[in-house]
Amino acid sequence: MDIRLPLGMLFSIVGALLAGFGVATASSQMYRQHSLGINVNIWSGLGMLAFGLTLLWLAKRKTA
């Protein structure tokens, strides 16, 4: 098994979830309380999603 497959899947799923949760809670007080008003869920989530999709693309390119 190509390790990029499970790794890419995990990061894509977790990244999408985090970013989605970030968008849904964008107006929440908790970002002001904890992360200096930065919506850290959206940014980290998008970063993880991009990384995950890149790995999936690399894994797919190799087998194709």
Partner: peptide, 11 residues
């Protein structure tokens, strides 16, 4: 605990 809101805290 200090810097992470729900979501990132879980991660």
């Amino acid at each position: 605990q200090h810097y992470f809101p729900a979501g990132m805290l879980g991660l």
